[in-house]
């Protein structure tokens, strides 16, 4: 297996840039906390996108200049933000009505494990302190499309895309697409389908570092990103 040593930050940027291509102009999108939030930095000019923050902001703008910081205006990661020109505020119940009611086109979230059937685990590790699921369990059932972005393997080099999740689930059968530093994989009724392989990796590399069976798409894209 080819080992490509990549700086972690470069790897995260690569994943975020690839995830950005999932966003179409006109979309309403929820980005999870952490790496998914970074996707906002790469949204192509010309795409008109409304970002939702589940704490009650529809239309997240860029980070504020120091002089415009408003302590009453934060995103779901509790970072100070601005509102976009289209921005509107709502209560938490309304925000999750938007989510649960499938009004969002897309949610991009982080993951610890994804299973062949689309099960997602991303909120707790037994034995470790439990911080809480926040809005993740609601969001995975809400947006029309759920994309999980994560490293392809754990820091110990073990697969994170599994036959079955070993960690407690966030949602059952909720994932539509997985984007990692190595591949883009779709969750279908027939199982996982490998759609794209990242630059520097081969189909073999991806299959070897994925525990769940992968079907290779007829229209596979190599060096896709």
């Amino acid at each position: 297996m080819s080992t490509v040593k990549q700086d972690k930050a470069v790897q995260r940027e690569k994943i975020a840039r690839r995830a950005e291509r999932e966003i179409e102009s006109g979309f309403y999108v929820n980005l999870g906390i952490g790496m998914p939030t970074m996707v906002a930095n790469y949204i192509q000019p010309g795409k008109e996108v409304v970002l939702q923050s589940e704490n009650g902001l529809l239309g997240i703008g860029p980070s504020p200049y120091e002089s415009e910081v408003d302590p009453d205006l934060i995103n779901a990661g509790k970072e100070t933000v601005t509102a976009s020109v289209s921005g509107s505020y709502c209560s938490s119940a309304e925000s999750f009505a938007m989510i649960r009611g499938e009004h969002l086109d897309l949610a991009i979230l982080g993951g610890m494990e994804v299973a062949a059937n689309g099960d997602l685990a991303n909120w707790m590790i037994p034995g470790k302190v439990i911080k809480g699921m926040g809005g993740a369990m609601d969001i995975v059932h809400g947006a029309k499309k759920i994309v999980i972005i994560m490293d392809h393997v754990s820091k110990h080099g073990t697969p994170k895309i599994l036959k079955e999740c070993t960690l407690p689930l966030t949602g059952k059968g909720v994932v539509d697409r997985i984007i990692t530093d190595r591949a883009v994989i779709d969750v279908t009724d027939a199982g996982l389908v490998l759609q794209e392989v990242a630059e520097g990796f081969t189909v073999r590399d991806v299959i070897d570092s994925t525990e769940a069976p992968l079907e290779v798409s007829g229209s596979l894209k190599e060096a896709g990103y």
Binding site: E54, S92, A93, S95, F96, I130, M133, G134, M137, D138
Partner: peptide, 15 residues
């Protein structure tokens, strides 16, 4: 004692 509740469910339970 802690009872963790998904954020949207929490908001809706209160609503």
């Amino acid at each position: 004692e802690v009872e963790l509740t998904p954020q949207g469910s929490l908001a809706e339970k209160i609503r």
